[in-house]
């Protein structure tokens, strides 16, 4: 279970007032739950994921994973139990290293890296098995440098690397946004398959409202660093993209109204 309590984060901006990216965010994600996150640009979606991953220290509040407080744990230590897929397909793999080497490094997620030989025959077999499950034929390209693969292939590889050790939490940050529609569909299909097979607790940021409603079991909407909507169950099942858009407009409108009232005061 992931518990986020009173999380606040502000980034220094050009002016005197810092840009508030997260404002008292509270979120509980039960084990095995799959949460989709939507919101306009600058709403704080990626900041939330980065805060959970430990990319930067947060100003207030705490992050707990399976009852353990990880608020002050450095990024590489949290990575032992958090898998991530980035928006940029180039960011999740080492281009100059082979498919096999990339996967072996992911296999050792969170382990102490010692001076034993990295790739063994047994490991190679297991990796080949896992790769064949992707259905992309990558199991025959174990010795190809990842830089020679397409963006979609690299993203599929990153997804496998993020999930193969069954992490306690999977973070997907608009991981299909940079792909063409066909490839994006394929990666989303793989995502659902892997998350379901391993029962992974997942947070997925997306700009696609249809994906947000169709995938996972919970949808949250963020606006100006706050969670403004959190739907699940039958209410969510009955929701359409149109409803979601209306909700979004209503929330934004209310806020505008608030601002106007403040100014009139």
């Amino acid at each position: 279970m992931l518990e986020i309590r009173h999380l606040c984060k502000a980034f220094p901006a050009g002016g005197l007032t810092p840009k508030i990216a997260l404002q008292d965010v509270n979120l509980t994600v039960p084990t095995g739950s799959f949460v989709t996150i939507i919101g306009s640009n600058g709403a704080g979606k990626s900041t939330l994921l980065n805060a959970v991953a430990g990319v930067f220290p947060v100003d207030r509040g705490c992050v707990m994973l399976n009852g353990k407080d990880i608020t002050f744990l450095p990024e590489h230590r949290r990575a032992a139990f958090i898998g991530r897929v980035f928006q940029n397909p180039l960011q999740g793999t080492a281009a100059s290293m082979t498919v096999e080497e990339n996967l072996v490094m992911a296999w050792r997620r969170g382990e102490r890296r010692g001076l034993r030989r990295g790739i063994t025959a047994g490991l190679r077999r297991q990796i080949r098995d896992r790769l064949s499950q992707l259905g992309l034929g990558l199991e025959d390209r174990l010795h190809t440098a990842v830089g020679f693969l397409s963006g979609g292939q690299r993203q599929a590889l990153t997804l496998l690397m993020a999930t193969m050790t069954r992490p306690d939490l999977l973070l997907l940050d608009e991981h299909v946004a940079a792909l063409d529609p066909n490839t994006a569909q394929q990666i989303l299909y793989l995502t659902e398959k892997m998350v379901a097979e391993e029962g992974l607790t997942t947070l997925m940021v997306t700009h696609n409202m249809e994906h947000a409603l169709r995938m996972g079991d919970t949808t949250i909407m963020m606006h100006e660093g706050e969670i403004v909507l959190n739907v699940k169950g039958t209410k969510r099942a009955a929701m359409t993209v149109h409803d979601l858009l209306n909700q979004f407009k209503r929330i934004r409108g209310e806020q505008l109204l608030d601002d106007r009232m403040l100014l009139a005061d």
Partner: peptide
């Protein structure tokens, strides 16, 4: 090659 990647692997 890619510090972000290997950091995300612990």
């Amino acid at each position: 090659d890619n510090p972000d990647m290997i950091r995300s692997l612990g």
